[in-house]
């Protein structure tokens, strides 16, 4: 399972264009070398908890999870709730990256313990900047428990 080794960023995004834009923004800043992209909530949970297609994965937790809110099958809120309610995964920083600026979503995410909540700007330059800053912050500046 060397393919999953040293996954640092888990990107959970159902929209391929958004995913591509996100990855491009990270790549530009050399943050996408160890990035794993999954397309729905179920796959995200499988990866995180080593289930389904990812059973037997033994390379530890990602350093950062970029999570979209609205996902097929299991939605982002549910994924967040599972991550933050499990002893093993609670410490993984989770950043919501979403189009929704709904107060309701923001409040709920924070109540579940989200680490950041980013609204994707439509403007690509702003978008790139936002994603890059988040990546920088959580990957390089933030000191996480070992």
């Amino acid at each position: 399972m060397s393919a999953f080794e040293a996954v640092e960023i888990l990107l959970v995004e159902d929209n391929p264009t958004d995913a591509e834009l996100t990855m491009r923004a990270l790549k530009k800043n050399n943050l996408a070398n160890h990035l794993m992209w999954v397309k729905d909530g179920t796959e995200a949970l499988d990866f995180i908890f080593c289930g389904g297609a990812y059973a037997g994965r033994s390379n530890g937790n990602p350093k950062l999870i970029l999570l979209d809110l609205k996902l097929p099958k299991v939605d982002g809120i549910e994924v967040l709730s599972r991550i933050k309610s499990d002893e093993r995964t609670r410490t993984i920083p989770v950043v919501m990256v979403t189009s929704s600026a709904e107060e309701r979503d923001i409040v709920e995410s924070y109540q579940l313990g989200v680490n950041s909540y980013l609204v994707k700007p439509v403007d690509f330059d702003q978008f790139s900047e936002t994603v890059a800053k988040a990546g920088f912050y959580w990957m390089l500046m933030n000191k996480a428990p070992e």
Binding site: T17, D18, L21, L69, K70, K120, V122, F124, F127
Partner: peptide, 21 residues
């Protein structure tokens, strides 16, 4: 409106983003 906020923005972002690319 929730869907509008979420779903309309993504294609817009794609239009803008890929134009930029």
């Amino acid at each position: 409106t929730y869907s509008v906020s979420h779903d309309l923005r993504s294609p817009l972002r794609a239009v803008d983003g890929f134009s930029r690319i």
